[in-house]
Simulated scan of single mutants.
Amino acid sequence: MKNIILEKIINNKLQNNLNIKDYIPNGLQIEGKKYIKNIILGVSICQQLLNIAVKLKADAIIVHHGFFWKNESSVIKGFKKKRIYTLLINNINLYSWHIPLDINEKIGNNIYLAKILDINIQGKINPFIFYGYLKNKISIKKFLLKIKNKLNRIPLHFGKNAPKKIYKIAWCSGAGQKFLGKVLHYKVDVFLTGEMSEMNFHIANENKIHFISAGHHVTERGGVIMLSKWLKKKFKLKTNFIDIYNPI
């Protein structure tokens, strides 16, 4: 498959034509060889992922967190030079889809979280926050255990005087902690996201809501996992999701 065709089909699948204001350019960020058969996928670009891609003779890398972030220095030196040099010298295409891979309703990070945590999606609070219901009311301890088992991460949790049994859930993959205030108006039992800020502790406790921070990395693995499976099944491409450990 041609590299520009791969970009188009993923743009179409992720509906990357909605004029979304993002922090990085979505799609093909660094051009490599013209034809693609072997694709490595990961959450974030890093030298370890690049080295694996070179070893496995990948034609392309697809990540959720790529290059060229807003407010980032445009100077290419040090580790950034090494990363880009690795791509160029090995003629590897680099693709990145950020917000489109968070908010897509078929292949996306938030959809994946709903699937593995058995949440029935009801809608969105805003483009980034989904909400829904569990099949039955369960204890918060049981829900935390499910997160631990499914994401292989012990989540941070607080919520003084929040209900012991939970049913209505709101969630946002990645750095969604800034949305806690907005979620309060929807009377959910739990708000799940990837990161947390100091102020979240007091806001959650004062409003008797469970706040769960499961990790930015693990809450954003799902989109690239689903994308990898879709590309393999529909287009017979060789895909390999590489999970580079990140405790954040």
Rank of each mutant, 00 (worst) to 15 (best):
Q177I: 04
W171A: 07
F201D: 03
N207R: 06
G132Q: 08
I140L: 14
K142M: 11
F191L: 10
V190G: 00
V190Y: 00
I119E: 03
M199P: 02
N152W: 07
P155Y: 05
V183S: 05
N120F: 07
E206I: 00
N152H: 12
K150F: 03
Y133W: 02
P127N: 15
I119F: 01
G123A: 14
M199A: 11
I154K: 14
I129L: 05
G159Q: 02
K164W: 07
S197E: 12
F179D: 11
I140M: 15
I116D: 11
I203S: 00
Q177H: 14
N120E: 11
C172H: 06
L180R: 07
A204T: 03
F143M: 09
I166A: 01
Y186F: 15
E198F: 15
V190I: 13
G194K: 01
I140T: 14
D189C: 03
F143H: 08
I138T: 15
Q122Y: 13
N152V: 02
F179I: 06
M199E: 13
I129G: 00
N161F: 08
V183W: 06
E195K: 10
K141L: 08
F158K: 04
Q122R: 11
G194A: 11
K135Y: 12
F191C: 07
F179L: 09
T193Y: 07
I147Y: 04
D118P: 01
N126A: 14
N126V: 14
L151H: 06
Y167E: 10
F158M: 08
K178D: 14
K178W: 04
L134I: 00
K146V: 01
Y131V: 04
A175F: 02
I121R: 04
I125D: 06
F201R: 06
L145M: 08
K135C: 02
M199D: 14
M199F: 13
N152Q: 12
E195W: 09
F130M: 13
N200P: 10
K135N: 15
K178N: 13
G176I: 03
H202K: 14
K142I: 11
H185N: 15
I169L: 03
L144P: 02
V190N: 00
M196I: 03
P127A: 12
V183I: 15
I129Q: 03
Y131L: 04
Q177Y: 09
K124T: 14
N161R: 06
K148N: 13
F179K: 10
P127R: 12
I125C: 06
K165C: 13
E198H: 15
G174S: 05
G159R: 01
L180E: 08
C172V: 04
N200Q: 08
G176Q: 05
I140D: 13
K182D: 12
L151W: 05
F179Q: 11
K148A: 08
S139Q: 14
A170H: 01
R153H: 12
A162V: 07
L145G: 03
I140K: 10
L134C: 04
S173K: 05
K141Q: 09
K137E: 13
I166S: 00
K178A: 15
Y167R: 06
A204F: 01
I147C: 05
N207T: 07
Y167A: 01
S139T: 15
E195I: 10
N205I: 06
W171S: 06
F191Y: 15
L180I: 14
F191R: 10
K168G: 05
A204P: 00
S197Y: 13
L180P: 08
I209A: 03
K142V: 09
K142W: 08
V190K: 00
